[in-house]
Design a protein around this nucleic acid. Structure first.
Length: 508
RNA sequence: GCCUCCUUAGCUCAGUUGGUUAGAGCGCCGGACUGUUAAUCCGUAGGUCCAAGGUUCAAGUCCUUGAGGGGGCGCCA
C-alpha cells in the first residue's frame, strides 16, 4: 500500500471515530482543576459550596471582600461574618493579600453583583503589608505602573489588556490553522546580518573586556560560540520564505529584536511579530489574507473579551473626558472595532495617495512639516495619518511604492518603477502591517541586491529558493503589540506587553 | 538621534511677583459605623520640594549642569 493513501484510509474506515471521541472527551475534562471565578460565575451553582482563591482588591465595611483571580474582569464578593471572625484574621485581609475562601454561593443581597460567597472559612495564605503595598483601590498613572510592572498585572486595566493579548494570540493561531497554515519556528539567533531591517543586537559569549583580535585587528568571531558573528533576529521572513516554498502556507509568531534608538509610543526593542508567507500568492491574495486576518482576530476579541473591552472603553472615555474635544476619539472603542470589522479597507496605490496628498488642504496651506514634493518621496506619519484619519476615515492599504524606498526582496512591477509592496495603515497606530509579493526571479533579485549593496555570498541559502523551484509568493509582517494597542485602545505600546524593552529600559 | 514639557507626602496633584511654619484629595494608621460597591464619618502621622553648583538679605519658585520620566518627530512592525 503506498503511504500516501493511508490518511484516506483513516477517513474511510472510521478509525478516526475510535480516536476523536477520546480526544473530545479528554479535552473537555476539567475534573482535576479548581474552579476559577470566571467558571463559578458562568455556572452559578447557587446553594452549593464553592472555593474562591485569589487576591483581595478591596475590603469594605469589615465585611465584603472583592476577590480577583485574574480569570475575568469581575471580582467575586466574599461576605465575612465579621462578628464571629477572629479580629486578628480580619486585620490581615488587606488589599493585595492572597486568600482562599470557602462557603455557599448565594444570590447577592447587594446591588453590584448577582451572586456572592457567604464565607464558611477564610484563610489568608499570603499577607500584603498595607503600609508597603503600592497598589491602592484607586486610579494610578500609567507612568507609575510602568515603574512597578511586576505588580501592575494585578490591576484591572492590565488584567484586561493581558487577557485580550492572549485572546488575540490564540485567534491568530486559530485563523491560520483553520486555513491550513503551519506554525513555523524561525530561529531567534541568526547568523545572517543581511536581513535589511535595521540595527541588530549582538549575541556572543566572547569576553567584552578582553576580546581576541585576528591578524587584521578585527574581533575573531571564529573563537565565538557559533564560530561566527551572530545576532538576535530582526525578522523571520527570509526563513519563512524557505518554508513557504516547501509547505506552501506557513506563518511565524515569535519575538523580534530591533536595536534602534526609537523613542515613541509605537516602538519596542523586543516585540512579537506574525509573518505569514504563502507560495503562489500575489499582492492581491496577500492583501485579502491580511485584511481577513485582522478582521477575524478583532471580531474574535469583540466576542470573547466583551467585558474587558467594555471596561477599556469606559476607561478611555474617562481618560479623554478631561481632554479638549479635538484630542478625543471620534468613535468609542467598541464602535471603532466594529467599524474596522464591518468595512472594507481602502486600497490604493502609492501614486494615487500622492495625488490625494498633493491636492489636500494641509499640503496647499503648508501645514505639513514635510511638504509633498511629488512622486518618489517617502510618506511621513503625518501624511499617513491624514489619509487614514481625515481623508478615508478607515484602514488604508497602500500599494506599489517606488522601488527606491522599499526592501530588496519586494517584487519589481512590470513598469520597472514600483514594487508590489503593501502597507496597512490604522488610525492612531499608523503602519500595522508591512508586506509584499516577493521577487521570485533570480536575475531581477540579484540585480536588486547588488544595487542595494546586500552581500550576495551571505545570502546564498536564500537565493537557492530562486535557483530551485522558484515560484510567485507573498507575505507580510504584523506587529503584534500594535494590534493589541489598537484593540485595547491603549495609547502607549509599553502598556500592552508585560515587561517592555526600550532604549534605557530592561527591568524585570 | 532631534525637539518639547515635567520631577513637591506612599499615589494624584496645588503652591501667586522670590518673602513667615510647604498644602489638598486619596491611601496608611487610630476611632466610629456595619449590606458595602474606589463604602462613609472623625482624628493622627507622613516632606533630602530629583541631584549638584550658582544668583540673592531671602530659592519649591530664577540661572547652569547632570539624572530620571512624559509627549512629538525620525527609523519601522
Amino acid at each position: 500500500m503506498p503511504p500516501l493513501v493511508v490518511p484516506r484510509l483513516y477517513l474511510l474506515t472510521g478509525i478516526q471515530n475510535r480516536y476523536l471521541p477520546i480526544f473530545a472527551t479528554y479535552s473537555r475534562s476539567r475534573k482535576t482543576m479548581k474552579k476559577s471565578i470566571k467558571e463559578i460565575l458562568a455556572a452559578k451553582p447557587i446553594g452549593q459550596e464553592v472555593t474562591v482563591c485569589g487576591w483581595v482588591r478591596t475590603f469594605r465595611s469589615n465585611q465584603f471582600i472583592a476577590v480577583s483571580d485574574g480569570s475575568c474582569m469581575q471580582t467575586m464578593q466574599v461576605v465575612v461574618d465579621h462578628e464571629n471572625t477572629d479580629p486578628a484574621l480580619l486585620k490581615r485581609i488587606t488589599t493585595g493579600s492572597a486568600v482562599i475562601a470557602t462557603g455557599t454561593l448565594i444570590e447577592s443581597m447587594g446591588k453590584g453583583q448577582a451572586v456572592e460567597v457567604k464565607a464558611r472559612t477564610i484563610e489568608v495564605v499570603g499577607d500584603a503589608d498595607p503600609d508597603k503595598y503600592l497598589l491602592q483601590p484607586k486610579k494610578h498613572s500609567m507612568e507609575f505602573l510602568r515603574d512597578i510592572a511586576h505588580m501592575r498585572i494585578r490591576t484591572n486595566t492590565f488584567g484586561a489588556v493581558m487577557r485580550i493579548r492572549h485572546a488575540l494570540a490564540y485567534a491568530i493561531h486559530h485563523f491560520f490553522h483553520e486555513r491550513g497554515f503551519f506554525y513555523f519556528h524561525s530561529p531567534i539567533i541568526t547568523g545572517s546580518d543581511a536581513e535589511g531591517a535595521g540595527e541588530m543586537f549582538k549575541v556572543t559569549t566572547l569576553s567584552l573586556e578582553n576580546t581576541q583580535k585576528n591578524k587584521e585587528g578585527d574581533v575573531d568571531f571564529k573563537k565565538d560560540f557559533f564560530g561566527k558573528a551572530t545576532n538576535l533576529t530582526v525578522s523571520g521572513q527570509l526563513e519563512a520564505e524557505l518554508a513557504a516554498l516547501a509547505l506552501s502556507r506557513v506563518y511565524t509568531f515569535g519575538p523580534t529584536f530591533r536595536a534602534e534608538n526609537s523613542n515613541t509610543t509605537r516602538h519596542l526593542a523586543e516585540f512579537w511579530m506574525i509573518e505569514p508567507e504563502v507560495a503562489f500568492f500575489d499582492l492581491k491574495d496577500n492583501m485579502d489574507l491580511a485584511e481577513s486576518m485582522l478582521k477575524y482576530v478583532i471580531a474574535f476579541a469583540l466576542e470573547h473579551c466583551a467585558d474587558d473591552i467594555q471596561f477599556l472603553k469606559e476607561r478611555q472615555e474617562q481618560e479623554e473626558s478631561t481632554k479638549p474635544q479635538q484630542e478625543r476619539s471620534t468613535m468609542d472603542l467598541i464602535t471603532k472595532l466594529h467599524f474596522v470589522v464591518d468595512n472594507e479597507f481602502q486600497r490604493l496605490k502609492y501614486e494615487e495617495a500622492i495625488q490625494i496628498l498633493i491636492n489636500s488642504t494641509p499640503n496647499k496651506k503648508g501645514k505639513f512639516q514635510y511638504p509633498i514634493e511629488g512622486w518618489g518621496t517617502d510618506l511621513q506619519s503625518e501624511h499617513e495619518r491624514y489619509l487614514v484619519e481625515k481623508h478615508f476615515q478607515k484602514p488604508v492599504i497602500l500599494t506599489n511604492y517606488p522601488k527606491e524606498i522599499k526592501a530588496f526582496y519586494m517584487r519589481v512591477d512590470d513598469d520597472g518603477r514600483t514594487v508590489s509592496a503593501m502597507d496597512i495603515l490604522f488610525p492612531s497606530i499608523g503602519e500595522i502591517v508591512g508586506g509584499s509579493q516577493r521577487e521570485e526571479r533570480l536575475d531581477v533579485l540579484t540585480q536588486r541586491m547588488e544595487e542595494m549593496h546586500i552581500p550576495l555570498h551571505e545570502m546564498d541559502w536564500y537565493l537557492d529558493t530562486r535557483r530551485f523551484g522558484t515560484c510567485p509568493h507573498a507575505g507580510f509582517g504584523l506587529g503584534f503589540e500594535r494590534l493589541v494597542l489598537f484593540v485595547t485602545g491603549m495609547t502607549n505600546i509599553r502598556d500592552v506587553i508585560p515587561f517592555p524593552r526600550t532604549p534605557g529600559n530592561a527591568e524585570f
